[in-house]
Amino acid sequence: MTTPLIELKNVTRRFQVKRNVSITAVSDVSLKIDAGEIVCLVGESGCGKTTTGKMIAGLLKPSEGEILFNGQDITQIKKQDWETYRLGVQMVHQDPYASLNPTHTIYDIMSAPLKAHRKTGGESATRAAAIELLESVDLTPAADFLDKFPHQLSGGQRQRVSIARALTIHPKFIIADEAVSMVDVSIRISLLNTLLKLKDKNGLAVLFITHDLALAKYFAWEGRVGVMYLGKLVEVSPARQLVEAPQHPYTKVLLSAVPEADPERTRQKQRIELRSMDIPSLLRLPSGCAFHPRCPYFDGERCEKEIPELTPFADGSAVACHTVTEMRNAE
């Protein structure tokens, strides 16, 4: 078996909010991502998807557990390997209006990482490299963009610059945190297609964080989608399978709540009701399965007491739910 590019082993992250109070933003998450694979993380705000992304990017340290990059624990590795890792994993942020320095030209923005890591020698080679990168994210003619400032670009174009900048140092892995949610609907798909093209061309692996299940299905068509709830992964399945045959009750509820762009279908869609609308506070997480106070499948004491493990099944899905596991084992 080959070593996964990124592996999370029982990763937990706590944040201290007051002197003796801390919240667990991510709790006991295990996930493997192979080279060239696409994985989407979906969930509501506060479910820990961004924290997970930041830990993988090395911007936050896990409180417990290990994160392995090419089999090496990133908290233990030596300086040189740490550099390889940091260069190998890049992040594209959500807000293209905030993630580019407004006083720098696109050339400044693109050339800084190229120069800092001595990827190119000399000004003209740097310029040529920047042009090539901008073209690879479909900003053409690239030469016209180099001397512009971010404010002269539209949101979609800025996000392309942001992606091009992440690519300057040839990463193996890109974490895109809500990377298209601030971009106009008509151009979201072309941005995602650019990322998909780069994935095919450069063998990039992508972790795409979103709250939009339809977008996750589109983007991770051949990859996987993980659903998070209150810091835990509750289901990880191949993308289309997750949408067409969801297993975990939370996934089912989410999917049934999404409106469809077809008036007849959306008005007749079967909805699954939650037992409670209130999202529990991270400060007072419910015992046992964190979803039990809201779960339509709630099944007594076991759900209240035992935390369900993410259990893999033969069809490629993995689900953390007592009821589902029991049903599927009985089959």
């Binding site: 609907v185 008509s186 151009i187 979201r188 339809a214 299905k217 589109y218 999404v258």
Partner: peptide, 12 residues
């Protein structure tokens, strides 16, 4: 606009 927005049921 309709074809630009993927839904749960649309094919890629």
């Amino acid at each position: 606009l309709m074809s630009a927005v993927p839904t749960l049921t649309t094919h890629r």
